[in-house]
Write a protein that binds this DNA or RNA. Structure first.
Lengths: 214, 214
DNA sequence: AGCGTACCGTACCGTACGGTACTCTCGGCT
DNA sequence: AGCCGAGAGTACCGTACGGTACGGTACGCT
């Protein structure tokens, strides 16, 4: 899983940035020649630094995935308002990330590779996306439960429902090429709605807010 | 949008079936030679019948997409129980479809092509998947609202939430290569849960059921 | 019987691309 | 000044694949 990818020189990071650009533009159709030209380096250097096309893609995905971590939520004071705010902030950050052209391109490449799964790009994306998100949010949910604000048996299941409420049909539509403008205002609205719906479903009895359906 | 694809001979359908098989096995890496061999036909016939690789893939996606329609729900007697049952049946059918190896392969190819969007595979899949689902379910939701069982302003938005509750993280995980066994019993359980949660969120006041978090 | 059509199998062509080798330049070190 | 390693640029090789051409065969139709 962890090759010796220890430190990348800034030159090499520039290469990865170029790969990312090309991924956005051409998907996984990017050629080594194109990368070399875009990054103004020789193909030979590419092969020396990364080994081959496969590893170059892997390095890029790994590098980018490590960059875009969703901000951790602080669990300082836990009342119903702050919990809702945390959920909302989380949802908003998540939506913002998956709507990124870079994220879409990355996911597309990973999905494409997942068919003949040699490189494990899919696993990397999954690990740094969906699963990392779960790892970050579950403590918040459990803290909410401990504080008597939430009620659920299985944090994983609760999180999956939250995931569904946030992502809805957005991610699959974006991946399939649907033009779907996600203006910040829209993201905020959707995030707020997702948080509200989640609280309606998992809020502890007596804490259940009025449900407004919009 | 609609090329003259009118009728396909059974021979040609056998070819598309072969393409489907190869998609499952190799993703979009399938070669014309492999298709010809698998379908026991000559490459020349392939080109005569379909025009080229691009059109062959498109024809396959279109054909398969038309095959797997989710069963329409009947809106005969609309009480709360039958509405819940319809939603559950709908969710169950949908989950069953997207967990299919064929569906996964198809979606992978479409997502991959969506980067350089010449063929519009993504649009076809979207049109026969997500949007078709919406078209089928919205009348049910509106009937439920008319019967005083549901409460929402925008059927589209309500449907998107239902979509999220059903799909959750399943589709993206499958596309990214996560081994995720969806046994029939599990699908039934998830479908039931999604329907229950949806009713909890959008059930008209006074109709709200007890919320059990699994 | 003779002809046309459909189509299989296969050889073939052109190109694109992954990967390698080679040359030339530049900057640092002694 | 002379040497040397890193790396840009480029030419090159092998191969895989999309697409085409062609020979051979089975089946009508007249």
């Amino acid at each position: 899983m962890d090759k010796a990818e220890a430190e990348l020189t800034s030159r090499q990071e520039a290469v990865l940035e170029a790969v990312l650009d090309l991924m956005v533009e051409e998907g996984d159709q990017l050629t080594m020649t194109a990368v070399a030209r875009r990054a103004s380096c020789s193909k030979e250097s590419l092969y020396k630094w990364f080994g081959g096309r496969e590893e170059l893609l892997t390095a890029t995905v790994r590098w980018q995935a490590a960059k875009v971590r969703v901000a951790p939520v602080d669990r300082a004071s836990l009342d119903r308002a702050s919990l809702g705010a945390s959920l909302q902030q989380f949802a908003s950050a998540w939506l913002s990330v998956i709507a990124t052209r870079t994220s879409i391109a990355l996911n597309r490449v990973a999905v494409g590779q997942a068919a003949s799964d040699a490189s494990g790009l899919g696993a990397i994306v999954l690990e740094n996306g969906r699963f990392e998100m779960g790892r970050r949010l579950k403590p918040v949910l459990e803290a909410g439960r401990d504080a008597g604000l939430l009620s659920f048996d299985d944090a994983e299941e609760a999180f999956r429902t939250f995931f569904g409420l946030v992502a809805r049909d957005v991610q699959i539509r974006l991946l399939l090429g649907d033009r779907l403008e996600l203006a910040p205002a829209l993201i905020a609205r959707d995030a707020e709605q997702a948080a509200r719906q989640f609280l309606a479903l998992f809020g502890a009895s007596g804490e259940r807010p009025k449900i407004r359906s919009v």
